[in-house]
Simulated scan of single mutants.
Amino acid sequence: MSVLIFAELDEGKIKKSSQEAIYYGAKVAEMTGTSATVISIGQTTDDELSSAGRFGAAKVLHASDSRLNEPNGMAYATVVAGIAQQEGSKIIVLAKSSLADAMTARLAGKLKAGLAANVIELPDLSNGFRVKSSIYTGKAFAYNDLKADVKILAIKKNTVTPEEKDVTAPVETVTPTLSDSDFVISVKNTEKSSGDILLPEADLVVSAGRGLKGPENWGIVEDLAKALHAATACSKPVSDLDWRPHSEHVGQTGLKISPNLYIACGISGAIQHLAGVNSSKVIVVINKDPEAPFFKSADYGIVGDVFDVLPRLTKAVKAL
């Protein structure tokens, strides 16, 4: 019996959020006196998968089937459910993502499991199995008592900071049992947002709104992002105006992100935007309006014109 952790891949690499999930799952395994087994699906290498040992995995199972090379929530759920039954796993851990969202409800149904999403702390085992979750876009918390025999935990990004060890895990190839019904939904093609850093995975994000006045001025945002090795994002009005691609829109109807640092430039801070970014560890707001609502949610604020502040900030970052 082991804690089973699903490791999501991006271009053959274990995603940073999944590295956090592996570490979290290994800690849960320690708490429950079991071991941590990782299941990964898709094209990758044994060297990449064995690196899961650095985060506490005792072994890694790699599901091999050409039909699984493109992420498919329905088929992936079947694979993970089958491995969980094979391993006798009573706890399944995965990082919350769009793919995980497509998998977890199906997994819960297949395994008759209890499910908690947006988990932000290790479980409390003092009186059963209780986990703390972030709800209402980070405005409140819920305590979930999971009483089902099998428990599924979808971990919010930045819940833990992994401590790496110089250890590798053995990798085993498994052949999943799949049927045509698992591919009723098929992935025809995948379009990825441009940029070197994926926004949902980014630790640092520089974002801007209509205060930039037009798409031709976005160079000062990109310059700061490059200096910080950060991803770029934008508010909904900016994406609606086609100043920036919709893949960069963060907010209630866009991406929900949890970076270590979020720098908001020329964004007023409407509640819909805050819903997508208020899980950031540190929020810096730059706005020339001292009454901008965003300052109430900021850890640090700069009252000033972005066209003056950003170039000076970029220069200071480069000097470091």
Rank of each mutant, 00 (worst) to 15 (best):
D180Y: 02
K27A: 15
S50D: 03
P176H: 02
V206Q: 07
E291L: 10
S17Y: 03
N189D: 14
A21P: 03
E248G: 01
L111T: 04
Y24N: 00
L313R: 02
S207L: 03
D223E: 15
H62L: 12
E163T: 15
G114P: 11
S279E: 13
D240Y: 11
I197N: 05
A81N: 11
T168N: 10
K110Y: 12
I22M: 09
P200A: 09
L204H: 03
T104K: 07
M1Q: 04
L68R: 07
F183H: 02
S207V: 10
T232D: 08
A208T: 05
E164K: 14
A113N: 06
R67S: 13
H62W: 15
I83S: 03
K188V: 14
D149F: 09
R312L: 15
L310T: 13
A292M: 02
T175S: 15
P237H: 11
A298M: 07
D47G: 10
G88C: 12
Q85V: 05
E191L: 15
L241H: 10
E48M: 11
S207P: 07
G33N: 02
A169T: 03
S280Y: 05
K110M: 15
S89Y: 03
V206K: 04
A102I: 03
R210E: 01
T32C: 01
A81Y: 09
T161L: 11
T177W: 00
P293S: 02
D124Y: 11
V80M: 14
F183S: 10
V317T: 06
W243R: 01
A116S: 14
V119G: 00
A81C: 06
A75I: 05
V250C: 00
G209K: 08
S280M: 12
V119C: 02
I155S: 04
A319F: 08
P170S: 10
L68E: 06
H229Y: 08
W243T: 01
E70M: 12
K96I: 03
M1F: 03
K157Q: 14
A231C: 11
L122Q: 07
G88E: 09
